[in-house]
Design a binder for these strands. Structure first.
Lengths: 341, 341
DNA sequence: CCCATTGCGTAGACCGTTCTACAGAATGGC
DNA sequence: GCCATTCTGTAGAACGGTCTACGCAATGGG
């Protein structure tokens, strides 16, 4: 089967076996112009019978590596699993492979990973909700084709973006709660060290504030924040629920936070719904569990991932202009926000 | 700062700037033998002032890529986040970078990803609970240094393994439940298409069966299985809980399943604990939430990941013999298995 | 029938490292 | 002071692809 001193079957072995030149085999590999069907078939059959596999490092020296880097902020949030599923779907029938890194929401690690991906000659990057500054993102995008998920930057033409309409999502939640009889509605947001205007949570907050105003609830507007860690979310939630003016409903920027709020509410003996309504965002799988029964906003991570991968491969193929894809969110009502008794 | 026609700073630019040969710079990069401290310092300073970054593809042509591939079966289970955290900890101060792929528990995708990783000249692989056959794993390990997490194969010398003592874990659960007054204890396992003897769930079942025997509960032994999907787990759980002989306690092979069981129990109006005790495995973060309060077995994914990365880098450095690391599990009791009232 | 065009295939430089082989200088034992 | 050994550093061939430049045939328009 295999051959060569090193055991590895190279493009040269294939060329010899098929009785053609090395360059011809390379053309077949790249689907390049200037090969007849007959030659293509002959080469492909040789590749198959020899068990040839292209050597990515060698390709990376001059051409593409057919590898896309995906940077996730976190592995604990199952929403990102949906995004990855979408990316994999999009790449299924292509030559591309996605490799992921996890930034753990730390800008230093994000930088290290992006550098590592650039060093490894990846053909493009999908950054999911990165924490980096805009200037840093633009520097990256100038080096390598980049698509962003979960960061609202329709202005910049350097990268493509894929987003949920987070402002609408925020509005949907407030309207739903108001319709079900809740008026004193708080928003539980993420404590971002460098408050940009483009983070999803900021847009959700904008929608929340606007809807509160429109419904005449401007006075009841209240925003609390906490960092990513479970511990600090619990502390903030407890503080909020024990405060003199406990809100009737809490809209959380992501399901993960909402689950912690449900937990604290239960510890304090508060009934959900009844004493308190809770709404999350992302509609992750845990919302469906009966012990959570969490109302949430569905933004289809799968579609987000799929579109990002599609836009990125297009850009790699040469598109210069930026494209911005927006999905429309949808509220999935469950009992955690049922009508007040 | 930078230079060269392509913008990229190469080893040649560094050599020229430092007034030494290309080979000397390469030696410094690889920490190879035969460079004086003076030369090393000079080269390092040149690298720094030019902003040199090694080109991974070029390195991959002859030497190492300093990239390790990690294959996870699934992104939804937060236990794997712990493993990744451990791997990242171990690699923190090394030149290595981890890139992950997600097999989605499908052997075909696992193969595609492993192939992709081998093609990309990764220096080693960490496979987490792979679904592949032993023969396939051995074929992979013969090609590339490999460490396994969550697969009991102490026999094979081709790869290192890192595991929890799953049999002990199973025993701990049964003993704990028996002490708290439960006798009719069922085990909820994973439906593996190709039933190997090495999967974690099989070992947990062995521990469960042994402990049931030892405690004189052999008659009450009962095992149900379901595939990975939420839907099918729910169906199996419902069937079990509505059966004529409803068990007093259910020991689930992983937390994810236990959460679904809790959900179904609640839908059926069963009190946990009281009508039913539930125990999970992995002690993932959701166990702590008050609405779950799920007793579970802690096996420290972080330690598993850290050890796997350590063993793998050792093996890459040349160790030939196999090593097998085992962590001791610990039961974390919460109210889902509290003493029967 | 001539020349331009298009289709198909080849030769060989090139990408940025690693690594082998070797050379010259310094050291040390006797 | 000689030779063996160790220490530093160099030259240049790999590695396995991609890609540019080019050559030869076949085609087709006038």
């Amino acid at each position: 089967m295999a051959k060569a001193r090193n055991g590895r079957v190279t493009i040269r072995d294939v060329a010899e076996d098929a009785g053609v030149s090395v360059a011809a085999v390379s053309k077949v590999l790249r689907d390049a112009y200037g090969v007849s069907d007959a030659l293509r078939a002959r080469v492909k059959s040789s590749m198959h019978s020899l068990g040839y596999r292209p050597h990515a490092a060698a390709r990376g020296m001059r051409g593409q590596t057919y590898t896309l880097g995906v940077l996730l902020p976190d592995l604990r949030n199952p929403f990102f699993a949906d995004i990855m599923a979408g990316i994999n779907d999009a790449l299924e029938r292509t030559q591309y492979q996605a490799m992921l890194g996890v930034g753990l929401s730390a800008t230093s690690l994000e930088h290290a990973l992006v550098d590592a991906m650039v060093d490894r000659q990846m053909d493009g990057l999908i950054l999911v909700a990165p924490r980096m500054q805009l200037a840093e993102l633009e520097a990256i995008a100038a080096t390598i084709p980049t698509a962003l998920i979960g960061l609202h930057l329709p202005g910049s033409s350097l990268f493509d973006t894929v987003n949920d309409d987070d402002q609408l999502g925020g509005r949907l939640v407030v309207r739903h709660l108001q319709e079900n009889g809740y008026r004193n509605i708080a928003y539980f947001s993420l404590d971002l060290p460098s408050r940009g205007q483009s983070a999803t949570t900021v847009h959700r907050e904008l929608g929340y504030r606007a809807a509160m105003q429109e419904l005449g609830l401007g006075r009841q507007t209240r925003v609390v924040v906490a960092p990513q860690t479970a511990r600090e979310i619990q502390v903030a939630a407890r503080h909020l629920l024990e405060s003199r003016q406990r809100p009737e409903a809490i809209f959380c920027w992501t399901d993960f936070v909402a689950l912690e709020v449900l937990s604290v509410a239960r510890e304090l003996g508060l009934a959900v719904p009844g004493d308190l309504a809770v709404v999350g965002y992302d509609n992750t799988s845990s919302c469906d569990l009966a012990q959570n029964a969490l109302t949430s906003i569905d933004q289809s991570g799968q579609v987000l991932g799929l579109q990002a991968a599609r836009l990125l491969t297009e850009r790699i193929k040469g598109r210069e202009s930026a494209e911005h894809f927006v999905v429309t969110p949808r509220l999935v009502a469950r009992s955690s926000s049922a009508r007040r008794g």
